[in-house]
Design a protein around this nucleic acid. Structure first.
Length: 197
DNA sequence: AACAACCTCAACCGCATCAGA
DNA sequence: GTCTGATGCGGTTGAGGTTGT
């Protein structure tokens, strides 16, 4: 990408791909001043970048413990299941995948998983027309189950076996990244909710 | 080998939300 | 209560790489 103008009065910002030198400067400043006040971080680092751009670069690329590429089968499975439940809430999904960023998961979904899911949906529709019991689609689930009552409890149909506390279930702050217990609880919930895994 | 079509992913944009003045 | 700046999120874009013809 080339240098572009943001408007006649504004200083032109560099919107080209980040260089190793820029990465180094940014990391250095964050080490000293912390990952906050991104506008001043950009200024202090002497980068002709917006605060937003610096934040994004740090969050998606420079941050420690970032995993890149090679999404495992387990991770893929988790993304699929979480997406079934949460939809395009990439940051929430990323919160359950240590070292993965919302941007990476979003990209992975758009380039790999959305196609897989579409194919599955087509197969399921075909199965339905053959007279087998119709499996529930995610849209059905959303329609029927994504309802939070006054007590903050997530409840489905009156007869539905699925009831859980949404806040507790989606509170990723207290528990570590995804624990086996959580995954198992989620899988169980998801299977009952969707009728398939 | 050359070109087109497709894919991937880094980066940007617009909008919503929040906190502080 | 309102304004303003900072931050976070999801959608989208486009450059570069890969694959197919």
């Amino acid at each position: 990408m080339a240098l572009m103008t943001d408007g006649p009065a504004k200083k032109e910002l560099n919107r080209a791909a980040w260089t190793a030198e820029e990465d180094r400067k940014l990391a250095q400043i964050i080490e000293v001043h912390g990952a906050q006040r991104w506008k001043s971080v950009a200024e202090k680092a002497g980068l002709n970048r917006s605060g937003k751009s610096c934040r994004l670069r740090w969050m998606n690329y420079l941050r420690p413990n970032i995993k890149r590429g090679n999404i495992s089968d387990q991770e893929e499975d988790l993304i699929l299941r979480l997406h079934k439940l949460l939809g395009n809430r990439w940051s929430l999904i990323a919160g359950r995948l240590p070292g993965r960023t919302d941007n990476e998961i979003k990209n992975y979904w758009n380039s790999h998983l959305s196609k897989k899911v579409n194919q599955k949906e087509i197969l399921r529709t075909e199965t339905t027309t053959c007279g087998f019991k119709r499996q529930r689609t995610c849209r059905d689930v959303e329609k029927d189950n994504l309802h939070v009552n006054e007590e903050g409890t997530w409840e489905g149909d009156v007869d539905s076996p699925t009831r859980l506390d949404v806040d507790e279930f989606l509170d990723f702050s207290t528990e570590g990244p995804f624990s086996l217990e959580w995954v198992s609880k989620f899988s169980d919930f998801n299977e009952r909710l969707c009728g398939f895994s």
